[in-house]
Design a protein around this nucleic acid. Structure first.
Lengths: 257, 257
DNA sequence: CGAAAAGTTGAACTGAATCAATGCCGGTGG
DNA sequence: CCACCGGCATTGATTCAGTTCAACTTTTCG
């Protein structure tokens, strides 16, 4: 049910020096929310410098810890999660490429939940000072981060509806719609398909279902011709129908209107 | 299942002139998070001026609306909620006396959910300008509002765990612990008891259960001697046991540590 | 190639939903 | 003051979505 989470096994992978690369997911994400200047983008790319490759199932922040710095995911899937004393794990949010975790770390006391990778991830840590500096010097970036946070809150509300009011199939359909939309926003989806580098057990702990039922629900969605999921890649074969089933309404992910 | 929500039927009840009153729940709540000066308190009491009494089941903000101002609940229970197209309602958060709703209204586009009263409520609206002014002139209040927001987010995470991972009894026990703790913080609880001015149907839509099952779960908690609930008042007869059952850990409501 | 992790399947079980009827209580009007 | 009405609470019977347990297969990866 739960994995022992280990810290470590990281190696420096990206030092911000290959500016010739495609845009970073962080820049892409924020550009959906505001118009960034060249300087804004450069500053953001600075933040992504020194990213490290982290093993799957590794904690980035532990319960009870005082978060010293924020974290950006540049590749892979991570999550916020919490274990019950009985052992069950509930995943509280998925962190995808471009997501920044705990911008308001400075105000925070102790973590009431953990943050960890699901797949292997490329992750950059942002010190409190670096964050304060960029927010002070780049008001547009500051605004984008605020908006991103609002989107995160709206997403949490959708998850509450998912867990409180939707059936297994609807939940799963909704999650897939959300993931596709969020990954599209950072250029990591094409033709209604994207990577889904997590196990059915992770999915189960996200959706509040048993892994057995996740398996059966996936089969049902496949049987209906709604999705395709082989290996670690997901495709929504009939986006309109999946959205209808899920009552998925994308605008909540763009809070600024 | 759902109620037609009406707007209106309000009358002015409090104009901020009876300073001799007990502390307002807003001041009480924020004083749990920071140390307020006399001026801070006076400014907050200004905000509560012009509060109005609102009928039960009345919308304060509608889906799709652009929120012009924030809202403070001074008495009664309100909530954030959303309806599915199938009609089910999911309550996303309970707003208790002292709670401020949508401090960041200015950044917001359109509401993705509604806000409405459950019981009759005493509610003050805070204009965008008034809010900006107080935040600018009273940094301590600004900090308190940020911390209150963090507590709200932590609460949302607990609700996710509730809906995703806890049984009906555990969920209900957890909700009651949360309510008691929050109401204690604003001086509206005594001897492990408090008002609970909402119906079993409201409770059902909060907990993601049917109203029939809420009824049976309440009976179970009563039978075990854990709670007492008559009329609209709730008492936790065995707080340690209720907390244990719910795995309730209060500190998440005090984010600053 | 072999072991461990992930996915799949079936059968039995159960927590919670649903359906439907009944009781209760507070307010309203005759 | 009582009769009636509507919303809320309660109860029983039945059904069902999702869980649990356990075995088995497939994939992944060292």
């Amino acid at each position: 049910m739960s994995h022992a989470q280990n810290i470590g096994a990281a190696s420096i992978v990206r030092d911000g020096s290959h500016e010739a690369d495609a845009k970073s997911p962080l820049v892409r994400k924020l550009e959906n929310l505001v118009r960034l200047s060249r300087e804004d983008r450069a500053a953001l790319d600075q933040l992504s410098a020194g990213a490290r490759l982290i093993e799957p199932h590794t904690d980035l922040m532990r319960v009870g810890e005082r978060p010293a710095d924020a974290v950006v995911v540049l590749d892979g899937f991570a999550c916020r999660y919490k274990h019950r004393v009985t052992g069950e794990r509930q995943i509280l949010a998925l962190l995808l490429p471009g997501d920044v975790c705990d911008v308001d770390a400075p105000h925070l006391g102790r973590m009431d939940h953990a943050v960890g990778t699901l797949s292997a991830c490329l992750v950059a840590r942002i010190s409190r000072d670096a964050l304060a500096a960029i927010v002070a010097r780049h008001p547009t970036v500051a605004r984008a981060l605020r908006l991103a946070k609002l989107a995160e809150e709206a997403t949490a509300r959708e998850w509450l509806i998912n867990l409180g009011a939707r059936s297994a199939t609807e939940r799963m359909a909704h999650l897939f719609c959300e993931l596709l939309t969020r990954l599209e926003a950072v250029g990591l989806a094409r033709e209604n398909g994207c990577k889904l580098p997590i196990t059915q057990l992770d999915l189960a702990d996200t959706l509040g279902l048993s892994s057995v039922h996740v398996n059966r629900t996936l089969q049902e969605l496949r049987r209906k011709g709604l999705i395709e999921l082989r290996g670690r890649s997901l495709k929504l074969r009939d986006l309109p129908d999946v959205r209808a089933l899920a009552e998925f309404n994308p605008p909540y992910l763009r809070p600024a209107h």
